Simulated assay, not measured.
Amino acid sequence: MTSVFVIAQSAVTAEHIQHVLSVSKDLEIVRISLGEDGYLNHLQRSKADIVAIDSSRGESETDRITQEIMHTHPLPVVILASAGLHNGVSQSIHALEAGALTVLQLPDNTHEEQSRRAAADVCKSLRLMSEVKVVRRWESTLFESIAKAGNNDEHEEECKNAIEIVVIGASAGGTNALQVVFDTLPADFPVPILVVQHIAAGYVDGLVRWLSEQCALPVVLAESGIIPQPGCIYLAPDNHHLTVDRKRCILLTNEESVNGFRPAIARLFSSVHDVYGAHTAAVLLSGMGNDGAAEMRQLYDAGACTIAQDKETSLIHGIPGEAIKLAATRHILPVQEIGKKLDVLTRISPSDTMRDETGSTENL
């Protein structure tokens, strides 16, 4: 049984959260708090496995509460977003920066079959994320471990093809990983970057704004029909698969979910496999599940450069771990080294590849 400590905005939202979580017999709400003084004492006594915070608290409350929990009584923290209530988007994004694992979308109700399935998915995510090990002041500890890791590559296979596009997939714990990767990319990064980040509907706009503040490259929402430009980062919008067509233009589709997701990492990776093939660099960052792992193996077989975030710096090593199990990776790296590796790989030119294959061209 997974014990959940809920911090809600009001009695109304608390009742809705309670109704959604009641779908699972494996979850137990040990206490519902309205963020009153002394809630940390209640949390410590509750022996909860995970904390769920109502995003509709708004302003800086979500961020503040997350920071207090991570500094005083570290537990896995998840933000619960009610459908149609996005007034706390920016605060929720900052809560992710402070240590929250992800934002989960609550269904409007649990009466319809689709809503019941969505509620079951929320419950499943809470159960799985309750097992994530967190530490006091986790963020500084994480970056200390990254710094110590240096540029150690656990597993390396040489990539010789000229890279024309970078694709990145991330899920729970991926927002901070994206920030670290993008922060290490130079302003003259020579190829476009397409990104699928699993996040609750209505939150990707806030994520785009936040990432734009963190790195030297422009970060925008992807739009159908445009040709991805070098040095620009394109994030998949809500409820659309991000793909590329044969003309190398971005194509957004609303086809059925893949692996339970739309946008799905799998759809992005499979489309670049068909269009760019070996001239792709694909990255899987922290996340739960296996979305994109099999498609990374297809890219690997095609000769693409494939990179997985290592276990030590992943909040959740599900997706990159699945890719590693499939022997789909040429590099397994600490998150802070991934951007540096991408910068090196994208500087390889066709002439470099020819010299590697035939030897020096001098005196010919």
Rank of each mutant, 00 (worst) to 15 (best):
V244M: 07
S90C: 00
A52K: 00
C249H: 14
I79V: 14
E295F: 05
S145H: 10
P263E: 04
S90E: 15
S349H: 00
I316K: 02
A187W: 00
S171N: 07
V51M: 08
E256L: 14
H331T: 08
L185N: 11
L142D: 05
G206C: 03
G99Y: 03
G277R: 01
P263W: 01
Q214M: 14
R267C: 08
S10N: 09
V132D: 02
V89G: 03
A100R: 03
T346R: 04
R116Y: 09
H317Q: 08
P334L: 05
E223P: 00
A328V: 05
I65H: 01
Q229D: 10
V335I: 12
I332V: 14
A170E: 11
G202T: 06
I250Q: 10
R45Q: 11
S314D: 13
R57T: 10
L104P: 10
Q336H: 14
I307W: 00
L221I: 10
V77D: 09
V134C: 02
P76V: 13
L345W: 05
F5H: 02
C215W: 04
P228A: 03
V244P: 10
S286L: 12
D291K: 05
L85E: 14
F269M: 13
E144I: 12
V219M: 06
Y39F: 15
G339H: 08
S115T: 07
H331F: 10
C305K: 03
E213G: 15
T141H: 12
L43A: 02
E362Y: 00
E362T: 07
H42F: 10
C305H: 02
I32V: 15
A98M: 13
G303E: 06
D291W: 05
N161Q: 06
I227M: 08
A48C: 03
V208D: 06
